[in-house]
Design a binder for these strands. Sequence first.
DNA 1: GCGACAG
DNA 2: ATCTTGTCGC
Length: 224
Amino acid sequence: MAYYNHPPVDSELIKSLTARQNELQKQVVLQKPDFTLKVIAGCDSSFIGENILSVFVLLSYPDLEILEKVWHYGTIELPYVPGFLAFREAPNLLEAYKKLTQKPDLIMVDGHGISHPRRMGIASHLGVHLQKPTMGLAKEILVGKFEMPGPEQGSISPVLHRNEHIANAIRTKEKVKPVFASPGHLLDLETATKIALATTRKHKLPEPTRLADHYAEVFKAQVR
DNA sequence: GCGACAG
DNA sequence: ATCTTGTCGC
C-alpha cells in the first residue's frame, strides 16, 4: 500500500523548484569566515495544521546568553518534499528574521547546508537570501554515507557523497546519536564543525538549535 | 527497477 | 514536522 513514504507531488512543480534551486546554488560561497563570532542565531519552525510558526533566537558567543527571540506565524504554501524543505520553511523564517532588532554574525539552521542532493539545503538557501554566514545542524542524514563516530564526546566522522566531504557526523554527547553539521553559505566545513561543538553544553543539540526548538514549542502553545 | 528521503 | 504511553537512565 504505502510503498512510498511521501505524498505524491506534481512533477512539473518539482522541475521548476529544481531549476530555481540550481540557480541559487551558483551563489553559494564556501570559505573561512571573515567575521569574529560574537552573536549567533538559531532558528526553527513548528507547524499547526496549515500554519507555520518560525523562531529566531539570538545568543551571545561564547557565553551563549539569550539576547533576543522573535517569531512569525504564517501560512504554509507547499508540502514537505525531501530536498525542497527550504521552499516550505524559508519564507516564514525570513519574515521572523526581519523582526530581529540586531543581526547575528552567523545563523545555525535546523536542517542541512551543502549536505544535500544539489548542495542546497535550507541553511544554504537562507544564507544566499540574507547574504549571511549560515550552517546546517541536522538530527538525521539526508544524503551520503558515513561511519558511526566513536562513542566519546567530540568524536567526528566524515559524511561522503559523490566523492565529496559534505558534512561531519558529530558525537556532541557521549553515547548519544550524532548530529550532522555542514556549511550553508560564507562558511567552511571545518568551522561549522567547530561551532557545533563550541556551542554544545548539557544537551545533544548545540544551544542555538536547541533553544530555537524549545521556543518554537513555547510560542506555539501561546498561539493556540 | 528498487530503495531512500532534512523538517 | 506531527500523532502518542510508558519507561529506562543519569
